[in-house]
Design a protein around this nucleic acid. Structure first.
Length: 513
RNA sequence: GGUGCCAUCGUAUAACGGUUAGUACUCAAGAUUUUCAUUCUUGCAAUAGGGGUUCGAUUCCCCUUGGCACUACCA
């Protein structure tokens, strides 16, 4: 009795996958997994003019990176696109023949008609009549199969005249849409226009027709999509009815939109550029317009942080829990805890999530991820054991892996400059004298571990009443070049005896002995 | 303009019709520390406005206001 849960994510390959789209995909995925159902991916490329090369690969790669698994349709495996499932093809541009028969069905049943009005004619009409809408009130004044004889229609088509097929919306009817998140939504059919279902110019259906036909054929049980689709949901209900599919019509859930962090409106690519954060999962090089968009992955985000952050933008669990693994999300997710209002995109919270997840990764993993940054700064083939130690010492100070460089650079490169501010505050008149003496103490160290060094340096400071802070801070400046960094013995430990002593000597030479 | 959706701290959100309106991020202060940071503690800060219903409304209803979406031969 219970219908198998089958949901789909159906993006258009018109550019990089927007972060809001990623969230829609995530919610679909969580819902499917929770119910032991299927997550499908279908490409909606019915607008040939907006196609962007590489966009499809990008979308699939992004989902793969984030761990949003696809059970059926198109997916990426090891850099290759593969199609799985019995309901294909999964690209709408490859389903032309399928749509033909359904267009014909609607035409034959009188739910649709052929219209010859050119885009120019329609534009003129709209300019002439304010609020012009192609519907029951106006369709009889237009050039279509309702006003032209069947013979003439055939002549026009045979002549090669371009036409579209429009859905014939019956007026004066309250159309009910049951939404899982918003409840009952009622719209009167008078405000709906006779939507174009198919265009002969490129022999492709429009979104509305393709979407309904595919969801039906692919046995989709729940349509979970962005709120921007809510106004056209009644049209979709009408289409299901016209096809006679109302009994298996999927349930709808319209998700709140992701809004700009400041001001008003939907989050857009421009906001990311303007405010300095990515709005796309992966970096994207648009071959069509030549633009490059930054991505979360390239900015140093961990996929689990992006998932967690996105999951909580519009959804909240029952308690105060904020950190969720994917498995926990699958368990806890529920459409009736999805909020109804749009969520402003708070980038700061995203940073915090990344910080949290960074701490959860092992030092070895982080060291590996740190490699490209090191290389970019001229550090080739470093000792990975050392990198891991250094990363472990500093990871709690950063939100992103690349930021590790500013925390650890002195481990790799001896300071040549000494920060003015630190010098002013921490390099005292007696510092050269202290450092000269310290050098002797260090050189006489029987071994080079933190305990031993602490055991000989501290008593020496106390004996001369130099003051721990004064000596240690000057020492730190010699090693780091500034008043920052991890615990001093952790630094000497990594640097080793020879390098530590060399750095103190170099500092004395530069800052005056 | 029309239609629809929505409304709790700056942000994301919690609160069977009964709570001192909670939590997290951000911000501020303090503590810890041989530096910087981390960490910990404390603090600032909200039910858009007006009517109802009710013993009692953040919660239910209506109006106002505001925000958003849609209004294509785009999705």
């Amino acid at each position: 009795m219970e219908r198998r849960v089958r949901v789909r994510f159906a993006p258009s390959p018109t550019g990089a996958l927007h972060i809001g789209g990623v969230r829609t995909a995530l919610y679909n995925y969580l819902f499917a997994r929770q119910h032991g159902g299927d997550m499908l991916l279908r490409i909606e490329d019915t607008d040939s003019t907006r196609f962007v090369p590489g966009a499809e690969e990008y979308i699939l790669e992004a989902l793969e990176w984030l761990g949003i698994g696809i059970d059926e349709g198109l997916r990426m495996r090891n850099g290759k696109i593969e199609a799985v499932g019995e309901h294909g093809p999964y690209r709408q541009s490859e389903r032309r023949e399928i749509y033909h028969q359904y267009v014909k069905q609607l035409l034959d049943s009188g739910h649709a008609y052929i219209a010859f009005d050119t885009p120019e004619e329609l534009e003129a009409k709209r300019a002439e009549i304010p609020n012009f809408q192609y519907d029951a009130r106006t369709r009889l004044a237009m050039r279509n199969s309702l006003t032209i004889s069947a013979e003439e229609v055939k002549v026009l088509i045979d002549k090669g005249e371009k036409y579209v097929v429009r859905f014939k919306v019956e007026p004066d009817e309250d159309v009910h849409v049951h939404d899982l998140i918003r409840g009952e939504v009622v719209i009167n059919s008078n405000i709906l226009d006779d939507k174009v279902l198919y265009k002969s110019a490129d022999d492709l259906p429009t979104y509305h027709l393709a979407n309904i036909v595919d969801d039906h054929l692919m046995e989709i049980s729940h349509v979970i999509r962005g709120e921007e689709w809510l106004p056209s949901a009644p049209l979709h209900v009408l289409l299901y009815r016209a096809f006679g599919w109302q009994d298996t019509m999927p349930q709808f859930a319209h998700l709140p939109l992701l809004l700009k962090p400041d001001g008003n409106g939907k989050l857009s690519k421009r906001d990311g550029d303007r405010l300095g954060f990515p709005v796309f999962p992966l970096e994207f090089h648009n071959q069509k317009d030549g633009t490059v968009s930054s991505g979360y992955r390239e900015s140093g985000y961990l996929p689990e942080a992006v998932i967690n952050f996105l999951a909580l933008l519009g959804w909240h669990g029952t308690g105060d829990q904020e950190m969720y693994t994917m498995d926990e999300l699958i368990k806890e997710f529920s459409l009736d805890r999805v909020s109804k209002s749009g969520a402003k995109f708070d980038y700061e919270k995203g940073k915090w999530f990344n910080h949290q997840y960074l701490q959860l990764r092992s030092n070895e993993e982080l060291a590996e991820m740190f490699l490209p940054t090191l290389k970019a700064n001229g550090i080739e083939n470093p000792d990975m054991q050392m990198v891991a130690i250094v990363v472990g010492l500093t990871k709690d100070r950063v939100n992103f892996v690349p930021e590790l460089w500013e925390q650890t650079n002195f481990f790799f490169v001896a300071p040549t400059e000494y920060e003015e501010k630190s010098l002013k505050k921490r390099w005292k008149e007696d510092s050269p004298k202290h450092m000269t003496e310290l050098l002797e103490v260090l050189e006489g160290a029987p071994s080079w571990d933190a305990e031993t060094l602490d055991g000989i340096v501290m008593p020496w400071i106390e004996a001369h009443e130099y003051g721990v802070g004064i000596v240690m801070n000057a020492f730190r400046i010699c090693l780091v070049g500034a008043a920052r960094g991890p615990h001093i013995w952790a630094i000497t430990d990594v640097l080793g005896k020879a390098e530590t002593i060399a750095r103190v000597r170099a500092a004395l030479k530069k800052l005056g002995a």
